[in-house]
Nucleic acid binder design. Structure first.
Length: 350
DNA sequence: GGATCCTTCTTCTTCTTC
């Protein structure tokens, strides 16, 4: 590559390295795919130039040495500044690797005949010890990068909409999410309305959620055996709680399901930020909670769109779930013992 | 009745060219 750049330069053509690489690759491919007879050298009078070729090829000492090339580089580009390599720390491991699964519970392959979905209301009565929630823990343990981008986004939005405008915008986003969840509760509770054969009649829903319901209709076709809806789960040992959106079978697999609304498309799981951690946290809590007799090791994040565009359904299989569970345990550790690194977050632009 | 809780969302470089 290095030499090629020079050759191109010496030929009087300044070509950026990346471009010259492409040229190089192209020429190699071209040479390999083209018949030899088309070689531009085939018409060269080799007899005439044989002495020149011999003299070049027989030269024992190249005019260019690594040292001369280095000196030339230093003159043209300046001294090499080596980038600071990121420190290769060992990946963090939770201090206590608490299990996601409950060894006393079997993984069900078939569903027992059950009544309506479980729905355990949150009960934070007076005198009960405070138990932090999944949302609170995730919010308070955001990485410096996450905090930075969120804060920057907020500043930009306020600059555009004003304080009051931004407040109204945020409230509207929350309202859409809440309305969508309310509609889903109705759909999932009255199972007959969406079981196979019965198409969802979106016009039955309030206009503001019709698009979202349309968006998830293809996902609902694969949802069966709803076991829990908007139900509180609390981890018996790790002492945190949350409210799980839904537990049901998706394509035959028992899952913790999280329904989301989004303005932006989220075609990849990585677009959902901490959502996978959220469902891992719920799954672990449910698996240890005595109010539930089964356990879940898979998850599903469904991102619905207001304009009715088909929702993205991101499956989190058991293997992925156990990875997210470990990360969740780290966030839980950070929540209980905040680390000083969080204070080193860069400040957003003004 | 009022206060609080959980959840509802929000982030990922940026520009040019075709």
């Amino acid at each position: 590559m290095f030499v090629l750049s020079r050759v191109l330069f010496c030929g009087g053509v300044m070509v950026p390295e990346r471009t010259s690489l492409t040229v190089c690759q192209f020429s190699v491919v071209h040479r390999l795919t083209s018949p030899r007879k088309n070689s531009p050298y085939s018409s060269v009078d080799s007899e005439r130039y044989s002495s020149l070729v011999k003299s070049v090829m027989s030269s024992r000492i190249s005019s260019q040495t690594p040292e001369s090339l280095q000196a030339e580089d230093d003159q043209v580009y300046g001294p090499v500044v080596k980038a600071q390599m990121p420190s290769r720390n060992e990946p963090r491991v939770p201090k206590i690797l608490y299990s996601l699964l409950n060894s006393e519970r079997a993984i069900e392959t078939e569903d027992p005949e059950t009544g309506p979905p479980t729905r355990i209301m949150l009960n934070r009565g007076q005198g009960r010890p405070f138990v932090p929630s999944v949302t609170r823990i995730l919010q308070q343990t955001l990485s410096p990068e996450q905090s930075f981008y969120l804060e920057r986004w907020k500043r930009r939005m306020i600059a555009e909409l004003g304080e009051e405008g931004f407040k109204a915008y945020s409230q509207n986003l929350f309202k859409q999410g809440k309305d969508f969840h309310a509609a889903l509760e109705g759909i999932l509770t009255s199972a007959e309305t969406w079981k196979s054969g019965n198409l969802l009649e979106t016009s039955e829903f309030p206009p503001e959620v019709q698009g979202y319901v349309q968006s998830i209709s293809h996902v609902l076709e694969d949802v069966r055996a709803v076991r829990a809806i908007e139900s509180t789960v609390q981890h018996s040992a790790l002492n945190y709680l949350g409210i799980v959106d839904c537990v049901a079978r998706y394509k035959g697999v028992l899952c913790v399901i999280d329904w989301k609304t989004s303005e932006k498309p989220k075609p990849f799981l990585s677009n959902t930020y901490d959502n996978p951690l959220q469902i891992a946290a719920y799954a672990g809590a449910l698996n240890s909670d005595d109010n539930y007799k089964y356990q879940v090791e898979n998850g599903l994040i469904v991102v619905a769109y207001k304009d009715g565009t088909p929702a993205h359904a991101h499956q989190v299989n058991a293997e992925l779930m156990s990875e997210y569970w470990k990360t969740w345990l780290l966030r839980l550790e950070d929540f209980r013992e905040p680390r000083s690194s969080a204070s080193s977050s860069p400040s957003p632009e003004k």
